[in-house]
């Protein structure tokens, strides 16, 4: 504001200026008062509001908890395996939202078997949407390699979208912090929560893979892909983290794909010679039982995978899959 020279400095202008000065002082004081904090900040980062993952599991029906179907064609075996457990309509009600969690850890071609097969994902999407008339299906994962590349190169993006699902890539703002009750490792840790928050059902779909550190990567290890943050540090105690993942995630259903098993060089594979055809697919409401059965594909015993016993002890399922009276079938 330009003060005009020719005007006399009268009482009116003095009062105006005094008023403005008083207002400025009041404003500065008000800001100081409102922002005043007599305590230094607490150590550590700001506290996050913790969330808990919903429990997606259904009550077990005797004799309809785990099914094992032999056959080379994933579309056929997965249909048969789910049918043996009572059909997809047992698991998904019309109008529900379903989240499918495949293993898309690596930006790798589907023929190398390092990721869940796109055909399998597409068929489960189709079953949910068409047969069970789910409202929507999300396919989610937080891959190790670049997420967009992983979804694209694994073929899952294209196959799932064509079947009517929606892909949710792991953007930071979709993660929330969680603490696992009774857990030792998962404390105040970011999980891929947003798509699960409003979902009704969760289906895990994982291939059977060799894993040098833990012995085997199957349906329980697959939940690693729901963790965010610097999750690699959990490899120091791999058995505990896998068991805790099984405690944290209570899926509606898991599908363990042993059609082609990665026997060596896992979990990345990289060569067709790392794969062996076992032509078997498992559907199970009990992830521990599924993985306990699956260990045999890699010529391992349940005792070779300590996380199985740990998960059983924590109540996530049973390693004694025989006790669940698995249903067997074969389709060509």
């Amino acid at each position: 504001m330009t003060e005009q020279k020719d005007k006399p400095f009268d009482r009116r202008r003095l009062l105006t200026r005094t008023g403005k000065a008083a207002f400025s002082i009041a404003a500065a004081s008000a800001v100081s008062y409102l922002a005043y904090d007599d305590k230094p900040p607490l150590p550590g980062s700001a506290a996050q509001k913790l969330v808990t993952l919903p429990d997606f599991s259904l009550p077990h029906l005797p004799g309809q908890t785990i099914s094992i179907v032999e056959g080379p064609n994933r579309t056929k075996t997965v249909n048969k395996a789910i049918e043996l457990l009572g059909g997809i309509k047992r698991f998904v009600q019309p109008g529900e939202t379903v989240v499918i969690k495949p293993n898309i850890a690596f930006a790798s071609s589907p023929i190398l078997g390092a990721t869940t097969h796109p055909q399998l994902v597409a068929e489960i999407v189709r079953l949910c949407l068409k047969t069970a008339r789910a409202k929507r299906v999300y396919v989610i994962d937080n891959p190790i390699n670049d997420p967009a590349s992983g979804f694209m190169l694994s073929g899952i993006s294209k196959a799932a979208t064509a079947a009517g699902a929606k892909i949710v890539l792991p953007n930071n703002h979709l993660f929330r912090h969680t603490t696992l009750t009774g857990g030792r490792l998962i404390k105040n840790w970011p999980v891929f929560f947003a798509p699960l928050e409003k979902a009704h059902k969760l289906i895990g779909v994982a291939p059977v893979k060799d894993h040098h550190r833990s012995g085997a990567s199957m349906t329980m290890k697959n939940w690693y892909g729901l963790l965010g943050g610097r999750r690699n540090i959990f490899h120091q105690d791999i058995n505990t983290i896998i068991a805790e993942l099984a405690m944290m995630v209570r899926p509606t259903l898991v599908i363990l794909d042993g059609t082609e098993v990665m026997m060596t060089n896992g979990p990345t594979g990289g060569s067709l010679s790392d794969l062996r055809r076992a032509d078997t697919l498992i559907a199970s409401c009990d992830q521990v039982a599924a993985d306990s059965f699956g260990s045999s594909f890699l010529n391992l015993n349940v005792s070779d995978l300590p996380y199985l016993a740990k998960a059983q002890k924590a109540g996530a399922g049973t390693t004694d899959y025989q006790s669940l009276k698995p249903k067997f079938a074969a389709v060509d």
């Binding site: 190790i144 105690d237 791999i238 060089n265 979990p267 990345t268």
Partner: peptide
């Protein structure tokens, strides 16, 4: 390195090596 210097298991590097056979062995 955790297994080399600190008596902690790890081998995240080996797990993620994309080659077959892997260039990291244990």
């Amino acid at each position: 390195c955790l297994p080399w210097a600190m008596d902690k298991p790890c081998i995240v590097c080996q797990e993620n090596c994309p080659l077959s056979p892997k260039a990291i062995y244990t």
